[in-house]
């Protein structure tokens, strides 16, 4: 498992835009793409968001395609399954005992377009805004500080865990720990329990170290952001266009 999302979130060309602007852009666009009763708006959203991510934020297109490929595959599988199994109006198209259902195809395609629309918005958020900045914004909607603190500590721990887990996994694998199903379960169990114990101890140590250095529930970081106004206007204009688009395309069907 490789989390380079974090790297790109810190190194992209939209870094200086205030996180609140990016957050509201991503989430509002996602909502309108979900609200749209026609597949047109979600597809437009997917295209616009991909354009912003690759060309404006400067995320390498290869990485972006890899990031988005898993949800796209799931979306496509959903489309196929809905068309084949979830419907009542059979069409003439089919093979063997399978029949493509017209209404299944329709809901499937709508679901597919919403999945790609939603996921490109999610990708925009996660590739341009670091997780700790997103969580800091939650403070503005009255999320208790303690939860944000635990979440951010958790985020830090995930990276420590991944490193330790891969070291242990390699050590076990070179000793034939994953040779059979039986030994795999045993090895994985050993790995998980050891990981739990080790990171538990590490968690305690990290906290003690932070306490002795005047940790009071906040890790202050310096961040330079551009002035808000032009970005806010841009977001509002984009979202209004999107609402109008949702209204006018509401009856259009592609399939």
């Amino acid at each position: 498992m490789n989390i380079s999302t974090d790297f790109y979130a810190h190194h992209n060309k939209l870094n200086r835009i205030p996180p609140m602007v990016k957050l509201s852009w991503g989430i509002l666009t996602m909502l309108f793409s979900l609200l749209s009763p026609s597949p047109i708006i979600p597809i437009i959203v997917a295209v616009v968001m991909s354009f912003i991510i690759v060309l404006i934020a400067g995320i390498p297109s290869r990485y972006y395609l890899k990031f988005i490929s898993v949800p796209f595959t799931f979306g496509f599988l959903t489309l196929v399954l809905m068309a084949l199994f979830f419907g009542v109006k059979p069409s003439s198209v089919g093979f063997y005992w399978f029949r493509v259902y017209l209404d299944g195809l329709h809901t499937g395609f709508l679901a597919f377009s919403r999945i790609i629309g939603g996921f490109t918005c999610l990708a925009f958020l996660s590739l341009t805004t670091p997780v700790n900045e997103i969580f800091k914004q939650l403070e503005k909607i009255k999320m208790p500080r303690i939860i944000i603190e635990i979440a951010l500590l958790m985020y830090r721990m995930i990276f420590i865990f991944l490193e330790e887990a891969s070291t242990m996994y390699n050590a076990q694998e070179t000793r034939l720990g994953y040779n059979s199903i039986r030994s795999s379960i045993k090895s994985l169990g050993l790995l998980a329990s050891n990981l739990f114990i080790r990171s538990w101890l590490q968690g305690e140590r990290v906290y003690q170290a932070m306490e002795t250095r005047c940790y009071n529930g906040e890790i202050p970081t310096m961040k330079i952001h551009e002035t808000d106004n032009k970005w806010i206007i841009l977001v509002i204009a984009f979202e209004i266009t999107l609402i109008i688009g949702v209204y006018f395309t509401r009856t259009i069907k592609i399939i």
Binding site: I150, M154, R156, M157, F161, A192, F196, G203, E204
Partner: peptide
């Protein structure tokens, strides 16, 4: 707090 964080990361 750190213990909860550790366990959360573990679930992740």
């Amino acid at each position: 707090k750190p213990l909860l964080a550790v366990s959360g990361a573990f679930i992740f």
